[in-house]
Structure formats: C-alpha cells, structure tokens
C-alpha cells in the first residue's frame, strides 16, 4: 500500500535526478553545433561543424595535448612501480608499521589537489627548479601512485601464497619466483592501473594548475578558455570528452560482462 506509493515517488525522483544529471551536458553538446558564438543555445543560428575546424587549427590545444601525453606517460612510468613497491612492502611488514605506512600512502588521496601541487613546487624551488612539466609529473605521481598501490594491494591479497612457495621449493630464486609467478598474476591489474593512471593524469586540473608554472596541458588550457566562454571550440572539446567517456564506460561494461560470463561458465 504505502510501499507502492513511495516506490512511485522514488522512481519519479530518480527520473528528475537523471534529467538534472544529463540535461546540462546535452545543452553543452548542442551549443557545439550552433553557428553562434559565444556558445549559446538560446540564440540558434543553424547547424554547423565550423567549430570542429577551428579546434583542429588551434595550436595551443595541440601543444597542450602533447604536454598532457608527456605528463601522463611519465606518471604511468613512475606511479606504477612506486605503487607496486608500496603494496609489496605493506604485505611484509608488522601490523603496526603497516598501519602507519598505509596511512601515509593513502594520505595523498585525502589531500586537496591544490596542496599536492603547490607543496611540490615549494619543495623544488629550493633546488632552483621552477614550476613546469617536471613538477606537474611529480605532483600527479604522488596521488596516482596511491591509486596504483590500492589496486595492487587488493590483487595481492587474492594471491595464492603457496604457488610462490612451491616455486621456491623447486629451486627458484626469489627473483625468478617473482618474475614467473607474481608478475604474471599481477598483469591484469597492471593494465587496469595504467589505464586509471592515464585518466587521472590526463583529466587532472587542480593539482596540475598549481604545479605547472607557465606551461599548460590540454585541460588547464580548456579551463582558461572556459572562464570567458568566448568560443564554442571548448564545447567541441567537450563533445570529444563525452564520446571518449561513453566509449570507456561501454568497453568497461562489456569486459565486466564477459568476466561474469566466464566465471559463470566455470561454475556451471
């Protein structure tokens, strides 16, 4: 009785919430195709692809993209080994030391991004290193390594310890056992962690903004263009980001579904 009524209200509420979540994005996409500048949906001057062409010819966006890719590549190369080392270290420490170390290692995730950025710049200023790509890489690595550590830790907890022991009993050196047993076991997580690290680095604004000095990435450049919202070129970039996000979400869902099917197949 009352359960039916409140269920209906909840459904309605959820529908409103979905409109609230998606309508603003729809408006932004629509303005990217409007021949009117500054970006608008209230003044419609016809469908155009003109802004796609302007984006293509925009040199600062291209240099920003290049910087973003350089930073993301370096962050992956640094954060994954560091995160893995942290996770391996945690597994072999006493409870007290591990607890303390864990707190330190997740602390970057609980620190506002601007603090990570600015503290890196302050630190390197003492060595006469000004803000730029280098400090942006280090500042991002600080927290991306935390994500990697958590992912590796979760994976390592599911590792069958007897496999490594068996390898050792059969005469493998610790290095061989690690290379032949642990590393292959971690491979799926390495891939996932690299993807997450790439996205975290590429999309980052706050930390990068405070660490990058006079340089720019694609995202910091978009930020400064948006402030004055002068040209629908930013809307076009938004369209690309939305397409990329949807693609990632769908691929991720398909992979998960396959994993689920595979698991069911084994049990059946």
């Amino acid at each position: 009785m009352s359960g039916q009524g409140s269920g209906l209200i909840l459904r309605l509420y959820m529908a409103v919430f979905f409109v609230y979540m998606f309508l603003p994005l729809g408006i932004m996409v629509a303005a990217g195709f409007n021949a009117y500048s500054p970006p608008s949906v209230t003044v419609w001057q016809g469908f155009t692809l003109q802004w796609f062409g302007e984006l293509w010819a925009d040199q600062r966006m291209w240099s920003g993209l290049r910087n973003s890719l350089i930073i993301a590549g370096a962050v992956i190369a640094l954060a994954l080994p560091m995160g893995l080392a942290g996770a391996l270290l945690l597994g072999r420490l006493g409870a007290r030391a591990a607890g303390l170390l864990y707190t330190v290692m997740v602390s970057p995730l609980l620190t506002p991004g601007i603090i990570l950025g600015i503290s890196t710049v302050i630190f390197w200023r003492n060595f006469e290193v000004a803000g730029g790509l280098f400090t942006a890489i280090l500042a991002q690595t600080t927290f991306v390594a935390s994500y990697a550590m958590l992912m590796f830790m979760a994976r390592l907890q599911r590792q069958d310890a007897t496999l490594e022991e068996a390898a050792r009993d059969l005469g493998a050196t610790p290095l061989q056992a690690f290379r032949r047993i642990t590393l292959p076991f971690l491979r799926p997580t390495i891939v996932t962690a690299a993807v997450i690290a790439f996205l975290q680095s590429f999309e980052n604004y706050n930390t990068t903004m405070f660490a990058i000095g006079g340089q720019h990435t694609l995202v910091t450049e978009i930020g400064s263009r948006m402030r004055f919202g002068l040209s629908p070129v930013v809307n076009v970039i938004g369209i690309f980001f939305i397409i990329a996000t949807i693609t990632c979400a769908v691929v991720w869902a398909i992979l998960k579904e396959r994993e689920r099917c595979a698991a069911n197949g084994v049990s059946a």
């Binding site: 994005l25 932004m28 608008s40 949906v41 604004y205 948006m226 939305i242 979400a249």
Partner: peptide, 19 residues
C-alpha cells in the same frame, strides 16, 4: 551515471556557466 561522473569536472562546470 558513470558518464556524468567520469566526464571532466571542467565540462560539468562549463555546462552550468552556460545555463
């Protein structure tokens, strides 16, 4: 919901600047 969640923060903000 992952779509609006994962889309860059700047785009979500810019949509509201337009609105």
């Amino acid at each position: 919901l992952v779509i609006p969640y994962a889309i860059n923060e700047l785009l979500r903000v810019f949509a509201w600047q337009m609105i």
